[in-house]
Write a protein that binds this DNA or RNA. Structure first.
Length: 256
DNA sequence: ATGTCTAGCAATGCTAGA
């Protein structure tokens, strides 16, 4: 079973690429982020025609997350995180499908540092930690998949120096991520590629793709019941090099 | 160090967000 997280950077602009990916890779589940689409304009018909059911949590202009599943509609469990009722960003969608609980997560970027956007990122992290703790207590197979906007370790970026001032690499951001791991979640990519050097994002600017100047910010965190079934983890990097590609590549785990 | 891309609004150019 192949489970994917893919920040599409605009689902309408990316639709040909997404359909192509579903057709070629035939993933069982895909968590999408940055739909940049309202609920009304989500391209449900095209995704259904490609053989996938979908649940989505959209927002006009930016953010937006979805969960797709091959041949079936995922069953929604929760949209949004508790703890900040005035927060209207669409960044969390939790579903059940194929016996798994799967959440599509789009953590705030948090730039510039310091500032209200960085403060919001850290508060959102705490809200996610609370939800993650509750999910672990269910003792079920759970995957928290998404764009965490965190570079967890120094060997998860092409350049520590270039990223030093960025919200993605601040100690507070890394602490938020490590606090999740400390709860008992497994970073699937890290487990399979312990020496680092695996990127999931390459900026559109400054020839980042051509220079392979990327970093790892898309993560799949596995509950113990899923970690036992982890067979492989990787990045479908070639999709980043295609015409009109997203700045993120699909990132995946294969489960037994 | 900001060289790119997407979307929205309004109007074919700008702004915001990343």
């Amino acid at each position: 079973m192949k489970i994917v997280t893919y920040n599409v950077n605009g689902i309408k602009a990316r639709l040909p690429r997404l359909i192509e990916y579903l057709t070629e890779a035939q993933p069982d589940v895909v968590c999408l982020q940055e739909l940049k689409s309202s609920d009304e304009t989500f391209p449900e018909a095209e995704i259904r025609a490609a053989g996938y059911g979908a649940v989505w949590h959209g927002q006009k202009g930016f953010n937006g997350v979805a969960v797709l599943a091959k041949g079936v509609d995922p069953v929604e469990r929760q949209r949004g995180l508790a703890g900040e009722p005035e927060d209207e960003h669409s960044r969390y969608l939790e579903c059940e499908v194929f016996g798994l609980v799967i959440a599509s997560i789009y953590l705030p970027n948090g730039n510039p540092v310091p500032g209200p956007k960085f403060d919001y990122k850290l508060r959102w992290f705490e809200r996610l930690q609370a939800r993650a703790r509750a999910l672990l207590a269910e003792e079920r197979p759970v995957i928290l998949a998404g764009d965490y906007n965190v570079i967890p370790n120094d060997d998860d970026t092409f350049s520590v120096k270039a990223m030093a001032a960025d919200a993605l690499m601040q100690p507070e951001s890394r602490h938020g991520y490590r606090a999740l791991l400390a709860q008992g979640w497994t970073d699937a990519l890290r487990t399979r590629h312990p020496k680092g050097g695996v990127w999931t994002f390459w900026d559109y600017q400054a020839g980042a793709w051509q220079r392979d100047a990327g970093f790892r910010i898309d993560h799949l965190l596995l509950s113990p019941a899923v970690a036992d079934r982890l067979a492989e983890a990787g990045v479908d990097k070639d999709h980043r090099g295609r015409e009109k590609a997203s700045d993120h590549a699909p990132t995946w785990v294969r489960l037994r």
